[in-house]
Amino acid sequence: MVHAFLIYTLRAPHAEDTGFCRVLYSCVFGAEKSPDDPRPHGAERDRLLRKEQILAVARQAESMCRLQQQASGHSSVDLPPQSSDEPASLHEAPHGAFRLAAGDPFQEPRTVVWLGVLSLGFALVLDAHENLLLAEGTLRLLARFLFDHLRLLAPVRPGSGEGAQCCLAPLTPSSGWGCLRGHRGHLVSAQPAPSSDVPPCTG
């Protein structure tokens, strides 16, 4: 089961200090049970904690990606020019998985699957024993969807987060299979327009 999905920025693999890793979009599918906190502003603190959790995942995934890029000898120079609307092939994009121990930062142990495409990182936070082949396929598909529908590399306009929302809506958290299947339906379909599975997205 998917716990969260996030999109974050990637820094160039060899640049030491060019800003922070930022979470551009995150969606948590069903929060962990809040601690019983009798103090005032408990909800506010809780929200802060969740945001920090997501940021912690993003940072870790970002550094995993950077380390992998460095290790395989890629430098930022190797990246293709970013004028194209879509990365050449998601199958060659750096990707990987790592584990989050219980309590660090989530209550339960989790597995994170990540994918780095040009300057963007995508990650799914999963239950510890999820089907990673499925998760990996789903993540690629999400990334592909988002690139297709939002033209993510085009100049940014307000609303891209909401666009992600529209795209994600049919891919509800647990319907990984529906998502893979639905998409295959499109590929097979002779019609160029998306079927009713994906509401038109204006983001």
Binding site: T9, R11, F20, R22, L24, S119, P155, V156, S160
Partner: peptide
């Protein structure tokens, strides 16, 4: 790039 744009 998106990262720079949205970051600002």
């Amino acid at each position: 790039a998106l990262s720079a744009g949205s970051a600002c």
